Simulated assay, not measured.
Amino acid sequence: MAKGSHGSRQAAWEFFGAELKRRREDAAFTQVELGARVFVSGGYIGQFEQAIRKPQLDVAQRIDEVLQTGGFFERMWRKLIKDKRYAEYFEAAAELERLATDIFEYAPAVVPGLLQTPEYARAVFVASNPLATDEYIDELVRARMERVLLLKDATRPMYWGVLHETVLRIPVGGPDVMARQLDHIAAMVREHKVLVQVLPFAAGAHPEMGKMIWLMEFEDAPPTVYTEAVLSGNLLDDPAVVKRTRASYDLIRAAAKSPKATLTLLESAAKDHRRCVSST
C-alpha cells in the first residue's frame, strides 16, 4: 500500500476515535465505564480514541449497542478494516504486530513471515494460489516485505523465534531460494536483530506439536496470543490462555538448540541445500 493510502487510512481511524470520544462524552460515560460495558479495559477505550489500537468487530458492535449509535461504529469498522494485503482473519493481528514491544513465535513448518525473503514468500504464495496473476502475487509479496521492515527499524520489537528443524529442511522455492533464506536468517542473528533457536528432530515430542505459537506483548496493554488454522485466525487475550501458551512456548524454547548451536545448524542446512543445487 502506498504511503499516502496508509496516511488516509490512519486519518480515518483518527476520525473513528474522535467520534467515539465525542459520543462517549455525550452519553456521560468515562472510558472505564464504557469499557466495562463493552468488555474491554478503560485503557483500550483510550487507545481506540487515540487511534493507537483498532477494535475488533464485536467490540465495535457492542459500542454501538451501548451508545445507541445505530450501527455507526460497525459500519465504519467494516469500511476501514478491509485491507486487501492481508486475509481478513489476519488484519487485526497485523495491526497489533506494529504495536508490540516483544514477539515470541514458534514455527512448526514454515519460516515466520517476519523472517522471510521475497523469494521464499513468493514461493509460499504461489503454492497457495497457483492460478493467480503475477500482479496479485506481487501485491502479496509487497505486503509481506512491508511487515519485514518492522525488524529493521531502530525501534523494532524484541523478536524471539523458535523454528522446528522441519522448517530448515523443506526446500521452499527450490534449494537455491532455501539456501538464501537460511543465510538471511543467519545474518539477522549475527546482526543482533533477532534471537532464533531451532528445535531439532531429536527433541521428539514437544508441546503444541504441529501448532504455531505467536505471542505479542505491549507496553500498556495485556499480552495477546494469535492462533491460526485453515483460513481462520483468532486473537486471544484471556490471561489464563496467554499464561498457558507462554508456558508451552517456554518448554519448546528449553528443548531447542542454543542460539550459538542454531547458527551453526542454519549454516550447515544452507550448505546442504547448495549441494543439491550443484548436483543438478
Rank of each mutant, 00 (worst) to 15 (best):
E228M: 08
V167C: 12
M178K: 15
D176T: 03
D250G: 04
V196R: 08
L236W: 08
R53V: 07
F90C: 10
V40L: 02
K79P: 00
A123W: 06
L151V: 09
L99E: 09
Y44D: 06
W160N: 04
G70K: 11
S268L: 07
G42D: 06
G70V: 02
A11W: 07
A121K: 13
V277C: 05
A2C: 00
A60T: 07
I103V: 14
A154W: 07
L251N: 13
R253M: 06
V38S: 04
V126L: 13
S248C: 07
R246I: 00
A107E: 08
F16I: 01
V126T: 12
H6A: 13
K54R: 15
V110W: 14
A187C: 02
G46T: 08
V148E: 08
V198K: 07
R62T: 00
A2D: 02
L149A: 13
R253Q: 07
E95T: 07
L34E: 07
Y89L: 08
V172P: 01
L263Y: 10
E135G: 08
I81Y: 10
L195F: 12
A93R: 11
R9A: 11
L168E: 06
T245L: 04
F72T: 09
A27L: 06
R53S: 14
E267A: 09
P222A: 13
A221W: 15
P239K: 14
A179C: 02
F201H: 11
T264Q: 09
R180T: 00
K260V: 10
G46W: 09
F39T: 07
E97V: 00
V241Y: 15
K82D: 09
F39Y: 15
T262E: 02
V66I: 10
